[in-house]
Simulated assay, not measured.
Amino acid sequence: MTENTRTPAGRRLLLACLTLALALVPAWTTTRAADAKTADLVYANWEEGIAYTHLARAVLEDKLGYTVTITAADVAPAYAAVAQGDKDAFMETWLPVLHKDYMERYKNDVIDLGHVFEGTESGLVVPRYMVEAGVRTISDLLKDEAKQRLRQTITGIDAGAGVMVTTENEVMPAYGLTDAGYTLLPSSGPAMMAALKQAMAKKEWIVVTGWKPHSMFGYWDLAFLEQDKDQVWGAGNIHITGRKTLREDKPELAKFLEKMQLTNSELGSLMVAINESKKDTLDAARDWMNENETVVARWLP
Rank of each mutant, 00 (worst) to 15 (best):
L22T: 07
E204H: 12
K279R: 11
A133F: 08
L282F: 15
S122V: 14
W220M: 03
T29D: 07
L222T: 05
R57L: 06
R149T: 10
V116G: 01
A273L: 09
G176Q: 05
H99F: 07
I50Q: 02
G210L: 12
L196H: 02
M1D: 09
T281A: 00
L95Q: 09
T120V: 14
S187D: 07
H54Y: 15
V135C: 11
E291G: 05
G234F: 05
N292W: 10
E104D: 07
V296P: 05
N237A: 03
D228T: 00
H214I: 06
V75H: 11
G160E: 10
A161E: 11
G268V: 06
W233C: 01
A80C: 08
K250A: 06
K278S: 15
I157T: 13
A235V: 13
W46P: 00
E293F: 00
F90L: 04
L267Y: 05
W211E: 13
G10E: 02
T209E: 13
P77W: 14
K203D: 03
D109R: 07
A254L: 03
L98Q: 14
A161K: 08
V131T: 15
A285R: 10
K244W: 03
Q227H: 03
M200E: 11
K107I: 01
T155K: 13
M1Q: 08
T155C: 08
P8I: 09
Y66T: 05
L95I: 10
Q227L: 02
E252H: 05
W205T: 05
E170H: 06
D144Q: 15
L124F: 10
S187E: 06
M172K: 09
A174W: 03
T178N: 11
A174M: 02
L22G: 01
A159Y: 11
T294S: 15
